[in-house]
Design a protein around this nucleic acid. Structure first.
Lengths: 144, 144
DNA sequence: GGAGTATTTCCCACTTTCTCCCACTACATT
DNA sequence: AATGTAGTGGGAGAAAGTGGGAAATACTCC
């Protein structure tokens, strides 16, 4: 289970070190893709296969799911984790998510999201304000 | 059953000792998450798994459940209880709940809530007043 | 094709933070 | 007063995160 929030540096060589707590679960190879809300998604190899399969099962008759497939799949890259636990973020993904040197890694159950630090704090401010509505949702699914 | 209210110190290393009475029920691993009304929730491992499972089943296709997942999951951390019964509170959770050195731990049946001392006493003042009114209301309609 | 340049890969080293352990204090109990 | 226990604090060592240099590979332009 990938959970928690970490702020790391994306260095001049576009290397990003993964938080220790994520490394075992992600494994030696990870897949990074374009994500939603201007962040990147990062999956462990296994989880990626599950997600990719779900995407494949979407009908390609509809133009929007076709577009979504292209969005997720064409933007996906498999990268190795180096000896000290870092991954290399390709330019086009770095640009897509407007990543600067300060980057936030957020664990969301089966994936890690990679955010520009400022976008993250803005987004987080949003969702924190909506906490009350979220509590109602919690009630609906019976979590509280 | 987690009950009672305790005031403890959050030290300079962000360590918070759990009240003795909570330790056996919480176990050796606990999960701390963002809570409602600007406090934190703390669960024992078992209680957390129940909640987490329900969250995992939500799709990331819809923006509201996506936000909800991010709020609950990226805002959660699994921490070990150390040899003398303390847990480590990560910065982003400490900030979220505006925790200073004086912190209140309140048992609420299946979870412990962690509060900034001042917010807690303000909040408690509120609910105590409301409790009187509510008791009267309940009495009027014959529920108590 | 080869010299020169750029890019990538691998490894090592530094700094800061965290972790583990031990010690002290305060309060309670006998 | 002596003993035990809960809570608190600090120091030494370990480890996570970070940056940079050298070797290896690719790339370009003559």
């Amino acid at each position: 289970m990938l959970i928690g929030e970490y702020t790391h540096n994306l260095d001049s060589k576009k290397r990003l070190s993964l938080p220790k707590k994520f490394r075992t679960e992600l494994g030696k190879k990870v897949v990074i893709t374009r994500g939603l809300d201007n962040c990147l998604f990062m999956f462990g190899e296994k989880e990626w296969k599950v997600t990719a399969k779900k995407l494949q099962e979407l009908s390609f008759a509809q133009s929007d799911t076709r577009g979504f497939n292209r969005f997720m799949l064409s933007g996906a890259v498999e990268v190795d984790v180096d000896s000290v636990g870092r991954v290399l973020v390709p330019d086009f993904l770095k640009d897509f998510a407007s990543l600067k040197s300060k980057v936030v890694l957020a664990g969301v159950s089966d994936r890690v999201e990679i955010w520009n630090e400022k976008s993250w704090s803005t987004y987080k401010g949003h969702i924190e304000k909506q906490a009350d509505k979220m509590a109602e949702k919690l009630g609906e699914i019976g979590a509280l």
